[in-house]
Design a binder for these strands. Sequence first.
RNA 1: CGGGGCGUAGCGCAGCUUGGUAGCGCACUUGUCUGGGGGACAAGGGGUCGCAGGUUCAAAUCCUGUCGUCCCGACCA
Length: 585
Amino acid sequence: MRTTQFPLNTVKETPADAEIASHQLMIRAGLIRKLAAGLYSWLPLGLRVLRKVEKITREEMEKAGALEVLMPALQPAELWQETGRWEQYGPELARLKDRHDRDFCLGPTHEEIITDLARNEIKSYKQLPITYYQVQTKFRDEIRPRFGVMRSREFIMKDAYSFHLDQDSLQATYDVMYQAYTNIFNHLGLKFRAVIADSGSIGGAVSHEFHVLADSGEDAIAFSTESDYAANVEQAAALPPQSLRLSPSEELDKIATPGQKSISEVSEFLGVTPQKILKTLAIIQTVKTAMNEDTEVFWLLYLRGDHELNEVKAHKILGEFRFATDEEIEGKLNCRPGYIGPPVKNSGQVINGLADHSAIAMSDFVCGANDPGFHLKGCNWESDFLIVSIADISERQVADIRKVVEGDPSPDGKGEITLARGIEVGHIFQLGSKYSAAMKAGVINEGGKNQIMLMGCYGIGISRVVAAAIEQNHDDKGIIWPANLAPFQVALCPMNMHKSERLKVASEQLYQDLQAAGIEVLFDDRKVRAGFMFSDMELIGIPHCIIVGDRGLDTGTVEYKGRTAQENIEIPFADIIDFLKAKLV
RNA sequence: CGGGGCGUAGCGCAGCUUGGUAGCGCACUUGUCUGGGGGACAAGGGGUCGCAGGUUCAAAUCCUGUCGUCCCGACCA
């Protein structure tokens, strides 16, 4: 391709509304243009990259035995009503009516559609297992679209769905897909982790997220320094402390801490580390009574001062809950937030308490005195509070409810936890029968009986992968494309070609030769100055650059520069094709 | 949904306080020079100042409404 026929549309200035590097660079390099909030057009250069992601994804899907289909983006409400998601899905679901006033939505996902397709097309167990996939535009009416195509309202997704007679078959395909995803991200040349994940609202049990590692990622993931354990921080288990609780050595003492409310304030005021301060959170749990009515129960949650509550874990134990309001805390404890703590033994108060493992292992600690302006020091669980001894702790009183922190032991016993940020680009689920049961998608089994199929689903955010790749691979000059994502492999940059006929001839010949060698080359035949040319090629992230000039023609050489190299190297003109071919393997 | 910011040329911005002929940089067009890291000079083209009302002799500027857009908000004991 020649730049005179393939406009680059680069811009020097950073767009005002782009926050993160990938968004800024995608605009500056001329990959995308914004149409409206969360809606982007792909320019020719960006589309080439997008197509590469699609191509690699398709190759691996085909290898995994998946069959490509294409389902409508516009979907009738009836199918969504069958699974109940028409009501469950919030305003994120882009709903609309057709001219006959019938309800439709723009699909954010295609479980309903594929399940409908499968129940009509698959009749016998002999046709199973089967996996369909598609590359389609999806719509989510995000509350707050941001970060360019990273979180947009319209985006391209590869989604695959598998159908099975039994769990073993589902597990087998899931494993194949797991491997296919690993292959895809390896081929894309991205640093990634597959992490154990919460399957969230889509339902089902087993689930992994694939994260591209990048400091600006929205998700925190925890992984082991020594094993391949990796989990979403929400999911990562914090093991109980191994060391035993130290025996009490201090007497309970009430001290004035006027105006000191937060852990950090109290820590500084009293000169104790946050590890020695108990953090007490007040929540209101919602439970169903025997009459099936909602009733509210007040709880105190105890954490070590340097830890944070993991709400996902707490919800698993307590079900529905919310944080108590200041008024509710006042009403129950006669105390303002900032000074609350576990009720002391002789207070006569009995309040439901749930402590984290590491909180119950504390001794001689500081906590709120349930008296505004006062804390207690020298606190010890058994001697001073109603909470039971460590010997007979029950599930309801002590559990893992905190977020893991760096340095925690890995849950699999190997190594320590390290935290990293990731961008979720893929997610695989074992859905089980959630959709197939709701939509009565069954086959005739070996015994001649109808049997509901099991399903798996597997998604990759194609457009998000492009942004994630940039987020992970860029410098102050621009994008640094991994080899398999680059819109072009090689930039051919002649110096002042318009002034030298022999350079023009040589450049044109080299351009032809590179193309003949099967190399994707971008020939910069614009009449622009050298610096302008180099800056453009670096901004758009072409991995390899060939510079040809009269100087080199005199000595029979061309110059080569890798995208991140500091120095140019001279290559004999005759060797350049072989040299590049070796680079491109 | 709450709080805040911003809508002026393709992009980035000034002008608004204190109403009086719409400006700057980049980009674009033409020409001359220049020619290995986003050139210089000269001459150009391009804007219903988001939209709708209102105040005024006069509104980008003041008032009201409206739309768009961006940021912040979900860990506080």
